[in-house]
């Protein structure tokens, strides 16, 4: 009963936040609602029974998305955006019928799939059966690295591609119009960072290690680490010019190249592509992926925000 009430409230919150995020008058309010929507999704995943997804959503939603949207917004404002955030919604008579129709369609499909008398997913059963052989405790990490490694490899490539494309965008044209950002110059921020930055790094390593046997993994750890970097960028301790060094470039590429090189290795001794040769390779790839994900997310953030250290003080 209480559980149902809780779920109902979460669902209600999700829906009303979504409505507010896309419709409200001011864009800033929309951003707040969207961020809160992401956090509520974390609650929803927790209730659905998927703590890994809750953690990913928390790391991304609580840290990155909000900051990303906020700096993009502030860049729009700094570039002289006076009218458009409040641009009135397009009038479309078809919008409501289409939206209702597609919502209904999705609802019917979803319920149909939920109620259909399917056998349990064979792939999932195989995962649960074979996982102990590899000494892994977390089925999701197992799927991501052992059984369907190519997806994960290409996912890192997607992240890298997004970064390269965003960098290309940020790098051309004149950048005189970058936002004049104000970094909060209060000793409190220093105190906060002094505590939170080391703690985030530690927690990231913890999540990385935990990923092999319980909730956690490279992506969650990378997102947490990225959040630490975002904090540093936001507080002006790291600026965009610092993010072009060779070390950073290697960090971005570490995940993809380590995965590819280790993935190609088995071909030399006649095994299948992407067969991981032992636990050490799992740890190595996970660590490299964490570094890459973190570096890529931080740089994507810096590019979307176009951050520059404000030299006024």
């Amino acid at each position: 009963m209480m559980a149902l009430l809780l779920d109902g409230l979460i669902v209600l919150a999700l829906v009303s936040l979504a409505v507010q995020a896309i419709s409200g008058r001011s864009l800033f309010r929309g951003i707040i609602h969207f961020v809160v929507f992401g956090l509520t999704m974390a609650l929803a995943w927790a209730r659905i029974g998927a703590p890994d997804l809750a953690m990913a959503e928390a790391a991304i939603g609580a840290g990155l998305t909000g900051a990303l949207m906020m700096v993009a917004y502030r860049r729009l404002v700094a570039q002289g955006d006076n009218h458009s955030p409040r641009a009135p919604a397009q009038k479309s008579r078809l919008a409501i019928p289409i939206a209702v129709g597609s919502g209904l369609l999705v609802g019917v499909i979803g319920l149909g799939a939920l109620l259909a008398d399917n056998p349990p997913g064979e792939a999932g059963l195989i995962v649960l059966e074979t996982l102990p052989e590899y000494g892994l405790g977390n089925a999701i990490t197992g799927v991501l690295l052992l059984f369907r490694g190519l997806d994960t490899l290409l996912e890192i490539a997607v992240l890298l591609t997004a970064l390269l494309a965003a960098r290309a965008l940020a790098g051309t044209g004149d950048s005189s119009a970058t936002a004049r950002t104000q970094h909060p110059e209060t000793p409190l921020v220093g105190a906060l960072l002094a505590v939170v930055i080391p703690l985030t790094i530690l927690v990231a390593v913890h999540l990385l290690r935990a990923g092999t046997h319980e909730t956690g993994g490279a992506f969650q750890a990378g997102a947490v680490l990225a959040a630490a970097g975002v904090l540093l960028v936001l507080s002006g301790r790291v600026s965009r010019t610092d993010t072009a060094g060779p070390l950073v470039r290697l960090g971005i590429l570490a995940g993809l190249s380590a995965f590819i090189l280790i993935g190609l290795m088995p071909l030399l001794y006649g095994e299948a592509l992407l067969t991981l040769p032992g636990m050490w390779s799992i740890y190595l790839i996970e660590t490299a992926m964490m570094v890459s994900i973190a570096a890529a997310l931080i740089l994507l953030f810096a590019d979307a925000g176009g951050l520059k250290r404000d030299r006024r003080g």
Partner: peptide, 9 residues
């Protein structure tokens, strides 16, 4: 810590 710093900011 987060709450006090956020409040101050």
């Amino acid at each position: 810590l987060a709450a006090t710093v956020s409040a101050h900011l």
